[in-house]
Amino acid sequence: MLSICAGFVHGVGYRPTRPWARALLHPLLLWPAMATLAVIWVHSF
């Protein structure tokens, strides 16, 4: 849930000023995390 929310925040154009927050919300981290969690969710049913 957290990665989906972070992806939405990134998608609307929010750019954090703190370096650690910018690294946490980086698309190279978010997109694979969202894809992995989506695959896990689909295969859980």
Rank of each mutant, 00 (worst) to 15 (best):
W31K: 04
A23E: 10
A23Q: 12
L24D: 09
W31H: 04
V42I: 15
P16W: 03
L25K: 01
P19V: 04
A21T: 11
S3V: 15
I40A: 11
I40S: 07
Y14F: 12
S44A: 04
F8K: 07
S3D: 15
P19Y: 05
W41D: 09
A21V: 14
M1L: 07
V42S: 12
L28Q: 01
R18N: 03
A35D: 06
H26C: 12
Y14T: 03
A35Y: 08
R18Y: 03
A38L: 11
S3P: 12
A21K: 14
A33N: 06
W20G: 07
W41A: 15
L29T: 03
W20N: 11
H26R: 14
A38G: 06
R15V: 12
I4K: 08
V42A: 15
G13E: 00
V9L: 14
F8S: 02
V12A: 12
R15N: 08
W20C: 05
L25H: 03
W41G: 10
L29E: 00
C5T: 07
I40V: 13
W20M: 13
P19C: 06
G7N: 00
A35Q: 11
L28D: 11
G7W: 00
L37F: 05
A6N: 01
S44Y: 00
F8W: 08
M1I: 06
F45T: 07
R22D: 11
L37A: 07
A6F: 02
V9D: 02
H43I: 12
R22M: 10
L25R: 03
H26G: 10
A33L: 14
W20H: 13
F8Y: 10
P27Y: 09
P32W: 12
V42M: 13
L24K: 09
A33D: 05
I40M: 09
I40D: 07
W41L: 14
P27T: 12
H43C: 14
G13K: 00
L2E: 06
L24W: 14
S44M: 01
L25A: 03
L30R: 02
A6M: 01
W41T: 13
I4G: 07
R18F: 02
S3Q: 14
S44F: 01
A35F: 08
A21L: 15
H43V: 15
L29K: 03
A6H: 00
V39N: 01
F8T: 03
V39G: 04
V42Q: 14
W20V: 13
